[in-house]
């Protein structure tokens, strides 16, 4: 697949193209908005576009999460945080561009974009998961003997990459504490 554009990239439909434009525009507006409250509001619009995109790609569960977390909870939490800090009124609508930061972000984007060429198409039989069944079969065959966990997905999460999951738990814990501080509560009740 190296050097060729995968078929998934080639057949972009009208709705995908228009959603891409919408999502990129909202993301840029969020990044460049001078006023924090305006950025929060435009970020809500961004999550609307992302949810529609996820829905189009037949991922309704992800779209539902995007709707509940990004549009609902994040907006409210950001507003609560804003209420506890000062918001300066600005005349200008857009922030002036910080060129070193924009250059670093552009380089990161370019680096990630190079890897996209080698991503296998959706459902491709050449995808490493299928073309290298030894790895997948090893997990299916050896999971119980190695970890004593009956569910393979659970074993990967909690045993094979347990430290990774532990790190995630720390992040969720920190987020919970931050939410409590913003809400000025002692417990979730």
């Amino acid at each position: 697949m190296t050097g060729t554009v995968s078929p998934a990239v080639a057949q972009v439909t009208a709705i995908e193209a228009s959603l891409f434009v919408f999502v990129v525009l909202t993301a840029l507006a969020t990044a460049f908005a001078r006023d924090v409250l305006a950025a929060v509001i435009v970020f809500g619009a961004y999550s609307l576009g992302m949810a529609a995109l996820y829905t189009f790609y037949r991922a309704p569960d992800v779209a539902m999460t995007e709707a509940a977390i990004s549009a609902g909870v994040t907006t409210v939490l950001l507003l609560l945080t804003l209420a506890k800090t000062t918001r300066i009124d600005h005349e200008a609508v857009f922030e002036s561009v910080n060129y070193p930061a924009a250059g670093a972000a552009g380089l990161l984007f370019a680096g990630l974009a190079i890897t996209m060429v080698d991503v296998p198409a959706v459902g491709s039989p050449d995808a490493p998961v299928w073309s290298n069944p030894d790895v997948t079969q090893w997990y299916l065959a050896e999971t119980y003997a190695e970890t004593g966990v009956e569910n393979t997905v659970m074993a990967v999460l909690a045993a094979f990459r347990g430290f990774d999951t532990f790190g995630e738990a720390v992040v969720v814990f920190a987020a919970g504490i931050a939410a409590l501080i913003v809400l000025r509560r002692e417990v979730f009740a």
């Binding site: 009208a14 193209a17 228009s18 959603l19 919408f22 435009v42 619009a45 576009g49």
Partner: peptide, 16 residues
């Protein structure tokens, strides 16, 4: 639906 997304891009002007 794509037409509605194009309309959304127009509405974005007011939001920004």
């Amino acid at each position: 639906a794509a037409g509605f997304v194009v309309l959304a891009i127009g509405m974005l002007y007011r939001a920004v």
